[in-house]
Each structure stands twice: as C-alpha cells, then as structure tokens.
C-alpha cells in the first residue's frame, strides 16, 4: 500500500487536518467496538482517558490548543 505523508505532517506547530489514519474504516470500527459493551458512564470515562493518552502522545501545546478549538471548545 502506498503511504503518502500529508503535506503538513512535518510541521510540528500545526494540527494535522488532512487524512492521516491508514485504514479509516477499520479504525472507526475499532473505536466504536471498543465501547460497545460499556455503559454510557464507563464510555465517558474511557473517552477522557483516551483524550489524555492521545494529548500526551501529541505533546505539542500549540497543536493541543488548535485541536481544542477545532473540536468546538471555547478557547481563548
């Protein structure tokens, strides 16, 4: 499979907005499936943990702020 890096992947100060997940359908299925047996409350807690794990993986403060904005958060 040909893997093409998105144009902005090398810019550390910008949130990647172009497709960057290989196998998008497979990932989406895995995400939904991972919560299938959870109650709403347990899924919410899991979402929180997931956000924290991924935020730490990203690490870049400016990118995290852009992601909060892109998700619709009220960011100053």
């Amino acid at each position: 499979m040909l893997h093409i890096l998105p144009a902005d992947a090398h810019r550390h100060d910008a949130l990647i907005r172009s497709p960057n997940i290989p196998d998008p359908d497979g990932f989406y299925e895995e995400l939904i499936e991972s919560q299938r047996l959870l109650t709403d409350e347990a899924a919410q807690l899991m979402n929180c943990k997931l956000i924290l794990l991924l935020a730490n993986h990203v690490g870049d403060r400016a990118v995290l702020t852009q992601a909060l904005k892109a998700a619709g958060g009220a960011v100053k």
């Binding site: 807690l45 943990k49 956000i51 924290l52």
Partner: peptide
C-alpha cells in the same frame, strides 16, 4: 465532565507516568 477527567487522570496515574 470535569470530574470524569479528574478521575481519568487519577486512574491513569498509577500505571502511566505521563
């Protein structure tokens, strides 16, 4: 929601140094 994030941090802290 703020409480869930707080609890998520506390639960993760034991296993994950981050």
């Amino acid at each position: 929601m703020s409480r869930r994030f707080r609890n998520a941090v506390l639960e993760l802290a034991q296993e994950h140094p981050f």
